[in-house]
């Protein structure tokens, strides 16, 4: 359609090649994260790796598909503010984390998942869940 030099210099023009490259990367990362889960790493490592890969994938989508890369600077700034407020949700999490030691009737999800082995070592399980 637009083979004119004008269109070629248009900074907002969608870059199809880039999209395809990102597509490839996303599929590879998906397979990677599944593969890592097959290694049965201990919880902390598994969570760290899983979240890292997810964060990379999400940033790729946001930066390239959602055009945040090279977007008018105000939209990223709005997003940064939103992320700041979303980060305030750390307080309910902290509260939950502080509260648990004083709570007596601890919750046992393990009842429904005896095969999972969590019930055997609840104490060892604990730090693993902090992300």
């Amino acid at each position: 359609m637009s083979n004119t030099p004008d269109a070629a210099r248009d900074p907002h023009r969608p870059n199809v090649k880039l999209y395809m490259a990102v597509f490839g990367a996303l599929l590879c990362l998906t397979l990677l994260t599944v593969a890592v889960s097959k290694l049965h790493l201990p919880r902390p490592q598994a969570i760290a790796v899983g979240l890292l890969i997810a964060a990379v994938k999400a940033s790729l989508v946001a930066a390239i598909f959602m055009h945040l890369w090279g977007e008018d600077g105000r939209i990223p700034r709005i997003l940064a503010a939103v992320v700041f407020f979303a980060a305030m949700m750390i307080f309910p999490i902290l509260d939950g984390a502080f509260l648990v030691p004083s709570a007596t009737s601890r919750v046992a999800v393990a009842d429904q998942h005896p095969d999972e082995g969590g019930a055997a070592a609840p104490a060892a399980e604990k730090p693993a869940e902090v992300k």
Partner: peptide, 28 residues
């Protein structure tokens, strides 16, 4: 929407932290 889903992820983390154990997703 970011606020909505961060609420849900917060719920997930809070409930997971307060659980004595949590199944590996691939077992369930």
């Amino acid at each position: 929407e970011i606020m909505l889903f961060s609420t849900l992820f917060t719920t997930y983390i809070v409930l997971r932290l307060s659980a004595t154990s949590w199944p590996w997703g691939w077992t369930a």
